[in-house]
Design a protein around this nucleic acid. Structure first.
Length: 235
DNA sequence: TACCAGGTCCTCG
DNA sequence: CGAGGACATGGT
């Protein structure tokens, strides 16, 4: 199956997604706006959001990010200095708040210790080194690292998440593939283009949320129904 | 009520 | 290695 063809079908059906949501200057709530992050604060917000959204709905993360923005805390050094309990309280809505507060703190202290507190320095590494650096931080796994690389550092890497795995299996393209195998399949089938990787992943999430849901998938109206092998696709 | 949501770490066999 | 549990809130 041609993954690029699937991409075009999704793009035709949903249109451009404008990932990742970011907050404009003077505002507090992150939105899909179809613009790449420009300033350091936007890049940091994506990094923080990537940690906060681990196994959690984005809606719950939005509130947490808004809290941090309203307090003016979306800043590496401020996040480094804030008391962990206070941080946990602010991000409570995103769940696992004690773990996530620790993970955010581990991340910012890492950037301060090794990269002068500037994401720009960390992100100037080549893609392999950057990924290894991110993965060495406790609490940052493959998906979180790759989300940071793709959406914040703006380098071409394909993000695999639960939606992607489910959709690929239901389509009948893969079965029991692990993260690295799935990622390889996408990256070897598509142009190495940050914009395409970003948009594709966003489209898969959209499809997973609205059609290829875990329970009660809406196969009848699914934009991919003609090429899908999901047993229950005729429901 | 139970399940799900843009995972990761740790432990055990 | 891979399975299984812990981490936690908010929506359906």
């Amino acid at each position: 199956m041609d993954l690029y063809k699937i991409y075009k079908l999704l793009l035709d059906h949903f249109g451009e997604q404008g990932w990742w949501p970011t907050t404009k200057e003077g505002e507090y709530k992150p939105e899909h706006r179809g613009e790449k992050p420009k300033v350091e604060k936007e890049r940091l917000e994506i990094v923080v959001g990537a940690i906060l959204t681990q196994n959690t709905s984005w809606k719950n993360v939005e509130k947490a990010i808004e809290n941090l923005n309203r307090k003016g805390l979306m800043d590496i050094h401020k996040l480094n200095h804030i008391d962990k309990k206070d941080l946990a309280r602010l991000i409570r809505s995103s769940g696992y708040y004690n773990q996530k507060a620790q993970r955010i703190k581990d991340f910012v202290s890492f950037v301060i210790d090794k990269y002068e507190g500037k994401l720009e320095n960390l992100f100037s590494l080549d893609i392999e080194s950057l990924r290894n650096e991110l993965l060495s931080i406790k609490g940052i796994g493959k998906e979180t690292a790759d989300s940071m690389i793709l959406y914040s550092a703006l380098k071409p890497i394909f993000v695999i998440d639960a939606y992607t795995k489910r959709i690929m299996e239901r389509l009948g393209i893969t079965k029991d593939k692990d993260y690295d195998q799935l990622q390889r399949i996408f990256m070897e089938s598509l142009p190495k283009d940050q914009k395409i990787f970003a948009e594709y992943h966003a489209l898969l999430v959209r499809l997973g949320k609205e059609y290829c849901k875990k329970r009660e998938p809406r196969c009848k109206d699914c934009p991919l129904r003609k090429l899908c092998k999901y047993p229950k696709s005729m429901v």
